[in-house]
Deep mutational scan, measured.
Amino acid sequence: NNDALSPAIRRLLAEHNLDASAIKGTGVGGRLTREDVEKWLAKA
């Protein structure tokens, strides 16, 4: 759900042209964290 994304995470996803639904969030309530996105980028 994009409503649950912080502005910083939205920007990070946009910079790398990523789809938030492709990344499993580990934050509160399954929210994406910066670490989630960075780990996903490291694997890609």
Rank of each mutant, 00 (worst) to 15 (best):
N1H: 14
E38F: 13
V28S: 10
V37F: 03
K24Q: 13
L5A: 04
W40T: 07
A14H: 08
E35V: 07
T33N: 03
S6R: 04
E35G: 07
N2L: 13
A4Q: 12
G30S: 04
E38R: 08
E38Y: 13
S6W: 10
T26I: 04
N2H: 14
V37A: 05
W40K: 04
G25Q: 02
D3H: 12
T33C: 01
L12G: 00
I23P: 01
E35Q: 12
L13A: 03
P7V: 11
L12S: 02
D36V: 01
K43P: 05
A22I: 12
K24F: 08
A42K: 10
I9E: 03
L32N: 00
V37G: 01
D36R: 00
L12M: 07
G29F: 05
A8R: 08
L18D: 01
R11K: 15
P7N: 10
I23D: 00
E15I: 14
E38H: 08
N2Y: 05
D19V: 08
G25H: 05
A4M: 13
A14D: 09
A42L: 11
R31V: 13
A8E: 15
D3T: 11
A14S: 07
G29W: 03
I9M: 06
R34K: 14
E35H: 09
A20K: 04
K39S: 11
V28R: 08
H16T: 02
E15K: 14
A14G: 05
A42V: 08
E15L: 15
D19T: 09
E35K: 08
K39N: 15
K24W: 06
L32I: 14
R31G: 07
A14P: 00
E15T: 09
T26N: 04
S6V: 04
L12N: 01
S21V: 08
E38N: 07
G27H: 02
G29A: 08
P7D: 15
G29P: 02
N2P: 13
D36A: 01
I23F: 05
K39D: 12
R34T: 12
L18A: 07
L5H: 06
G27W: 02
L41C: 04
V28Y: 09
V37D: 00
H16K: 04
N2E: 14
N17D: 08
G25M: 03
E35S: 10
R34Y: 15
P7M: 10
E15M: 15
L41G: 01
E15G: 05
H16Y: 11
L32D: 00
R11T: 12
T33G: 01
K24A: 11
